[in-house]
Computed example of a mutant assay.
Amino acid sequence: MADSSALPLPPPPSPHALSVRARERVVAAAAAADPLLAKLQRGLTATPAALDLNLMTTQYGLQFLSELLLRVRLLPHPAAAALSSAIPTRLRTFASLISDIRTFNRLWGTLALLRWGVATLEHPPADCVLRAIATCQVLANLCFQPMENAAYLGGHSVLPLSKRTVGKLWTYSSRLWAVHVILELVRLAREYGLARRAAKAKAVAVAAATANEKDITDMAVTDDTEAQSAVAARTLWARQLIVNAAYFPMTIHWSLESAPLLSDLAIGLLGTIAGGTRLIPLWRSA
């Protein structure tokens, strides 16, 4: 029997074969990563609103973190003392840069507000209170945006405005934003009242239909769909309430010309809550 050690070894793969295999692995890895990249693209930059929401949450999150780190450094602990002061400063600088970018992007926001006004005129809410709220919100925002634009451009010396004028514009634009937020809270309260009234009317209708078996069967068919719609509406309502409840003290803070109402830590926390509450469903649906 021949010695197996004398059998010839298979030739090594050629450089061309190795390059083909490497390319196939790279292509397979890229194909596997493409769904994740698509989700990131949809969640981050699919629309201007999505981009601004991601930037907003990052901005206030960095501000909150930087202020938190500054406070940690003041604790009487060796690990806290070892924390470099450069980290909070750099985080805050990055947050300020993001804020500037967001304000710059809103220079063209009047176009979207005008479209909102047209849509409100064409399809106004059926309820007279909600219709009045929507009209006032459109008007407040149409005044807010040019003021913010002028303040931003004046602060960057694009418009020949004094520092005092720029400060006034920032204050009055913040007050108009506060008007919008207050009207949002009023709208939510009105929608809550209307929803409760509709629920009571539905309960009366169900009670009246108990005498007719066919009516009960017909109503049961739509109960599941209506229940799902009701849950979605309540979730949206609660989310909007959280967002505007977080916005409200921020708008009052920037509307005051006297001493500030909130600390930078509180502003960072409230802004993160407002942004994150809206960002979570955006990423879930991306």
Results as ranks from 00 to 15, higher is better:
residue 280 I to F: 10
residue 206 V to I: 13
residue 98 I to L: 13
residue 89 T to F: 11
residue 230 A to Y: 07
residue 67 E to H: 07
residue 194 L to C: 05
residue 280 I to H: 07
residue 110 T to F: 09
residue 70 L to H: 12
residue 253 H to K: 02
residue 193 G to W: 06
residue 212 N to G: 03
residue 108 W to E: 08
residue 24 E to D: 12
residue 97 L to P: 03
residue 216 I to V: 15
residue 40 L to V: 14
residue 163 K to P: 10
residue 222 T to D: 14
residue 269 L to H: 05
residue 215 D to I: 10
residue 270 L to S: 01
residue 92 R to S: 15
residue 101 I to L: 15
residue 233 A to W: 07
residue 109 G to Q: 04
residue 182 I to H: 05
residue 229 S to T: 15
residue 145 Q to D: 11
residue 63 Q to H: 09
residue 209 A to G: 04
residue 88 P to C: 08
residue 254 W to H: 09
residue 76 P to D: 08
residue 26 V to F: 14
residue 171 T to K: 11
residue 251 T to W: 00
residue 275 G to Y: 00
residue 165 T to N: 05
residue 181 V to A: 00
residue 248 F to N: 02
residue 175 R to K: 14
residue 205 A to K: 11
residue 172 Y to L: 06
residue 15 P to N: 14
residue 275 G to I: 01
residue 177 W to M: 02
residue 14 S to D: 06
residue 110 T to E: 11
residue 280 I to S: 06
residue 207 A to H: 13
residue 132 A to G: 07
residue 285 S to R: 13
residue 28 A to H: 10
residue 268 G to E: 00
residue 123 H to F: 09
residue 106 R to L: 10
residue 6 A to I: 15
residue 13 P to C: 13
residue 83 L to E: 03
residue 242 I to S: 02
residue 199 A to R: 12
residue 105 N to A: 09
residue 281 P to I: 03
residue 5 S to D: 15
residue 151 A to P: 00
residue 89 T to K: 12
residue 248 F to G: 02
residue 284 R to Q: 10
residue 27 V to T: 14
residue 47 T to W: 03
residue 93 T to G: 08
residue 123 H to G: 05
residue 209 A to H: 04
residue 2 A to C: 08
residue 226 E to H: 13
